[in-house]
Write a protein that binds this DNA or RNA. Sequence first.
DNA 1: CGAGCCATGTAAACAGTTACATGATTCT
DNA 2: AGAATCATGTAACTGTTTACATGGCTCG
Lengths: 198, 198
Amino acid sequence: MKYALLALLTRTPMTGYEIGKQFGTSVGFVWHAPTSQIYPELRRLARGGLLDVDEMPQGRRKKRYSITEAGIRELTDWMNQATVPEPSRNAIFLRVAYLEWADPEAARAQLELMAATFEERRAVLESVLTTLRNRTHPRLAERLQALAPGEHERAAAFKVYAFEGMMESARQQAEWARQGLRLLDGLDTETPPRGEQA
Amino acid sequence: MKYALLALLTRTPMTGYEIGKQFGTSVGFVWHAPTSQIYPELRRLARGGLLDVDEMPQGRRKKRYSITEAGIRELTDWMNQATVPEPSRNAIFLRVAYLEWADPEAARAQLELMAATFEERRAVLESVLTTLRNRTHPRLAERLQALAPGEHERAAAFKVYAFEGMMESARQQAEWARQGLRLLDGLDTETPPRGEQA
DNA sequence: CGAGCCATGTAAACAGTTACATGATTCT
DNA sequence: AGAATCATGTAACTGTTTACATGGCTCG
């Protein structure tokens, strides 16, 4: 979370509200949090000197946060130490592994929901990828402006690469869900709906 | 968590300690938790009538938990209502998306670590899959004994299917990490280590 | 003037991790 | 006797979600 906020703010200063809205867009694939987690974390980071607060004096209370030198150091320090990717503990595997405890129709409904969800995610990620690749993605363009031209390619490449990974992951999961539906087809024809044995 | 414990105990009654050890084996891929989370949760489930406690009277304090009718109903109710798979919020995508903030060597080290980790995970899952497929997996065999023969195929098929998904996922991620290393090769040759622009 | 968005937050609960404590049994 | 393993737990902390509270600004 901490590093997600720091990384986001390397592009441009933002208010907590704006960050919350960003999480509703494509950056939400990379990280997500509700505003109730954002505001306290921003204050904590500001207290720690990693962010600067600009209290906008135009009538309404509004705090725009920007990253400090110390914040950038904190972020790069984190990035420079490699960590092992955490094993993904996703409840969907638990469900699927014990799907014999669901009614056959419920099992089918679950796999259809999975197929639809993963496929939609894949499609969204693919369209994001397209805009990243041809540099029409608005936030990527904005980010590149803040960087030296020599770093453009590197920064853009990593964004594209990250989304490729997420897209491929969604594609693979969608494929897996469809394979599950074919598996059910096989099981249901071999033994009739409520199973006599063999 | 709750449903992981219920599902595990459909195979055979176990103590909290035994469950903790199970999480260190292949079931750990499906779900994992430390004992500090297991013991309180077991007590809670027992208080709720979903588990029976058998306080073993042989000298040492030892509680063997088994699932009750109510527990099975709770599990099947949960299985029967389809839920959308949660988007995986994995810090690795955050790291990768902002890898331009790492030193080139650190970026390479991170991707190499990812490739090694994912590849090892894939290999382990593949070997588990083999034992599941040829029915030599000890816990699968034990599980099937508790079931009517007519349900064998279905139960085994879902276990195989779940591990296929996890294995494919690890395979895809390993491939992605290797692709990332090739990307770095390209970036590093185009612009020398500390980058003059184009 | 009301609807909807902008904007910041608090409270409570839930989930999960890390570290520590304790003692019994089994194996060498 | 000592080490390893069996066995159950507590405490403190971190992270995350859900629900609620408040009020200003903007536009029709």
